[in-house]
Design a protein around this nucleic acid. Structure first.
Ligand SMILES: [Zn+2]
Ligand SMILES: [Zn+2]
Ligand SMILES: [Zn+2]
Ligand SMILES: [Zn+2]
Lengths: 135, 135
DNA sequence: ATTAAAATGTTATATTATTACATACTGTTA
DNA sequence: TAACAGTATGTAATAATATAACATTTTAAT
């Protein structure tokens, strides 16, 4: 059995794969220059190489950017293959970040319409608080 | 009638007032260095002076940071005197940003609990789409 | 083989934000 | 008033985050 169309569409280039692997195995969100430092031994030498891979990985939904932290985590939510509807919980003490997958939440937000009738194609939600350990 | 306690607590210093005035009268979110450029004639010369005022204004809820844009807008939602529960709509073409004040939305999000039972003290939500004009 | 799209390599630069340290102002209390 | 604590300011230097511009190479389809 060959590569399915959807897998092929999202197959990663060399730099993308190196950077995705690093982020995917990290227990915490990684910043661009932390990534750069960690992949220099693999031949990725310049910020732009990192940012280009990050842009692509975000675009195809393999990773997400935590906007309030300028950091990136791998997607562990099988339902969000594209970065269109993201929600995270962030501990303000230990900085642990978890992707939230709640059918109720995503349904509520996907259906939300504001007063102007503006219809949204995308959202990002970041919750802040204290995690179990830090409470 | 004197200054009420709550007003006094939130009374602004000179730099804070200058920077708040600028943001408050701007039709669009302003970036830190745009602010710096625009207040140099008022004697504010260094980035740090801007960032310190911004930090304070965010803390007391007079302005909000649009995380995905690294920009700041004045709060026009009387119910959010502190920056604990914010929601915005952002047009991806013209970059118009509007603060959303929906009782339903804030009630839903304030009450949201994730699987781990983590209770949140704060959230920020950014919706993206096309505004009326750009559609 | 031709070709177009995507990805890479490289240098330089732009943008966003903080550290460190010295000084001054504001309001309260002894 | 004098002392004090908390907040705000001024200034220089630097750190951290992100993009512009341009040349080249790889990939994958025709
Ligand atoms: Zn995801
Ligand atoms: Zn924690
Ligand atoms: Zn507000
Ligand atoms: Zn628009």
């Amino acid at each position: 059995m060959g590569i399915s169309k959807i897998d092929k569409m999202h197959s990663l280039s060399k730099n993308q794969q190196i950077i995705f692997n690093l982020i995917d195995k990290s227990p915490e969100p990684l910043k661009a220059y932390t990534i750069l430092f960690n992949v220099q031994k693999k031949g990725i030498k310049a910020p732009l190489q990192v940012y280009r891979a990050l842009d692509k990985l975000v675009e195809i939904g393999k990773i997400h950017k935590i906007e309030s932290r300028n950091a990136f985590i791998a997607c562990h939510n099988s339902s969000c293959q594209v970065a269109k509807a993201t929600a995270f919980s962030i501990c303000e003490i230990c900085e642990k970040v978890t992707e939230i997958s709640s059918a109720g939440l995503s349904k509520y937000l996907a259906g939300f319409k504001d007063k102007d009738g503006m219809k949204y194609s995308k959202y990002n939600l970041e919750f802040f608080g204290l995690c179990k350990k830090c409470r």
